[in-house]
Nucleic acid binder design. Structure first.
Lengths: 340, 340
DNA sequence: CTGAAAGCGCTTACAG
DNA sequence: CTGAAAGCGCTTACAG
């Protein structure tokens, strides 16, 4: 087997024309059973496998989906990638993966590289809000989780989900809350913050006022740790009783800062995340967070891509609140003697 | 631009033959400067980009590397994937990614799928020791981290690295150690265990004897937590003073078990991992572990793949010990009053 | 140094 | 229902 057999070899072996072989391969056109048999026999006798490249050239259709993520090392993106791969596989497609390392140029060049390979479609988890990419519809493009250019976005309903956290914390009695926001140049960062803030504002109007501090950071561990450290190195009375973070990684960083500062979570401080990465359930205490429906998101993105014609509208999928050990009732500092 | 321009369009625009265009594209053959200019001008005027598929069909060479990992959601594999992607990019190649979900059949079918796409080469992080794949050299295949079939393996020198941990723990005075091994059907699992055990045995002969318990598990969090829980729910005197795990994830699971059982790490128990995933530096306490040189591993794997002829021998790369807070001196239980 | 032509392995109208 | 033939967009001997 020094050379792979081609459709021509199969045709000769079976004593038919290549067209006929092609037809039984596609299964579309009707072929007389006798010939069909012969062809099938030839195929397995020779161990023939169609040349995907040739097929792609001829039909200018491939079965690969390109995915670009900011950083595959980020657990949430890894989860997303895994889900996209699975969804693609279910639809008989393969995955090409590229990391943009949060670099806009890399992101663009990866998209172009995918275009050059005439992939079936491209899903991009943008590194930051992309601006005017001069890309018209040769190949469908869908934004996942974070908007890329002006392409349709499939994402968690960040605002709705963030409001869930606000409800939770308010319900627990917290009236001094810090929110660690994500980068304001990401739609997810903005929407989560806005959802959270506007819910808290609403409480201010209809219930008890809440003192809300907002700090900005990146979505990673280090940012969360750093911001939380600043927030928490104040005397107890001036400290927030709850920190809501825009990502699990930030929240886990915050947890670490709290531990370093010997602040008991959840007794003295509640901490919440966003994403429900698998780690969230493993840290101590386990993290209260928002579950992003990675699987559903991925599946929808792939569907939109593959639809004929490709989906064109945004889709928002609700997140759900996962209550675990890192959040608890506010330690009512007004009662004397209960203070730290 | 409803249709992508082809090499033919460029040729017409520049007033030359397609052969000439192809030659300036490849940069190999000599082309008279005047024509070269014209062609370049035409290319940018039309926004021409070569059709990768056609080129692949013609040359039967592509610039994509296939990577199959057991689970992209596992932080170490994610790191490996990121490194492979980077290394591939540096060599002008793209990455196709597939997850085997630790399923041998899926693994095989992904390899075949890559073969069908006539990728330039395939790197596989095996889910378990693959056996006789009937794959001869159409396309180079390299095993990374865990051996696939009988293909050349690039991996950390697991035995050497595990011995480093043994040295560390022994040096700290631990004489009752538990080792949480990885699955014995993985080469990495076996070699790490063997490296660890034989080093401890050596101590037994040349120094003080060490009581060594060995438990088996998968490489994941849950396994580590479960095994450690069993190990640690014994009275303090019968407990190991150190747990060496075959992966960071196991170790982090063990950390969690220790915390649940209120066993102070590192005061009463030392815990070590293997991999140095980014999380290792974020758990509390930070995890002492072995750094696997993911970047070097990936780069070597890609190099072997791309060499002409492809590399054929195994390569072992030394790991390094990273000492952090989860390991410390043994709490000499022999001194009365110091006991728990 | 350059053009005309063959061919990579398929699919798909076009006749019959 | 089936075969002969064109053509997808390239690269590369082959002449000149």
């Amino acid at each position: 087997m020094s050379k792979m057999p081609t459709i021509k070899d199969v045709a000769e072996y079976a004593g038919v024309s290549v067209g006929t072989v092609s037809r039984v391969l596609s299964g579309e056109a009707a072929v007389k059973p006798v010939l069909r048999e012969k062809v099938s026999a030839a195929i397995s006798a020779l161990g023939y496998r169609p040349n995907v490249t040739a097929r792609a050239l001829r039909t200018s259709k491939t079965d690969v989906i390109g995915l670009v993520v900011p950083d595959i090392t980020n657990p949430f993106f890894a989860q997303l990638a895994a889900s996209v791969e699975r969804a693609a596989l279910e639809c008989g497609h393969s995955l090409m993966l590229a990391s943009s390392h949060d670099d806009r140029e890399a992101e663009q060049s990866h998209v172009f590289a995918f275009l050059d390979r005439s992939v079936r479609g491209i899903i991009v988890v943008a590194s930051s809000d992309g601006s005017g990419l001069p890309l018209e519809g040769a190949v469908p493009i869908i934004s996942l989780d974070r908007r890329f250019g002006s392409f349709p976005l499939v994402s968690t309903n960040h605002a709705q989900a963030a409001a869930l956290i606000a409800d939770h914390l308010y319900g627990l009695g917290h009236r001094h809350i810090a929110y660690i926001a994500g980068p304001p140049d990401t739609e997810a960062g903005r929407m989560r913050k806005e959802g959270f803030v506007s819910r808290i504002d609403l409480f201010g109007k209809t219930g008890e006022a809440v003192e809300l501090e907002i700090a900005y950071g990146k979505f990673d561990y280090e940012s969360g740790e750093k911001v939380a450290r600043d927030l928490l190195s104040r005397p107890p009375q001036g400290r927030p009783t709850a920190i809501a973070a825009a990502s699990d990684q930030q929240a886990i960083g915050a947890l670490r800062a709290a531990r370093d500062l010997k602040i008991d979570v959840p007794r003295k401080l509640s901490v919440t995340g966003f994403d429900d990465i698998s780690l969230a359930n493993l840290v101590v205490p386990r993290l209260t967070t928002i579950r992003q429906p990675a699987d559903t998101l991925a599946r929808r993105a792939v569907s939109l891509l593959l639809e004929e014609p490709p989906g064109t509208g945004d889709e928002m999928i609700d997140g759900s609140l996962i209550v675990r050990g890192s959040s608890g009732p506010c330690a009512q500092p007004r009662v004397a003697g209960h203070k730290n």
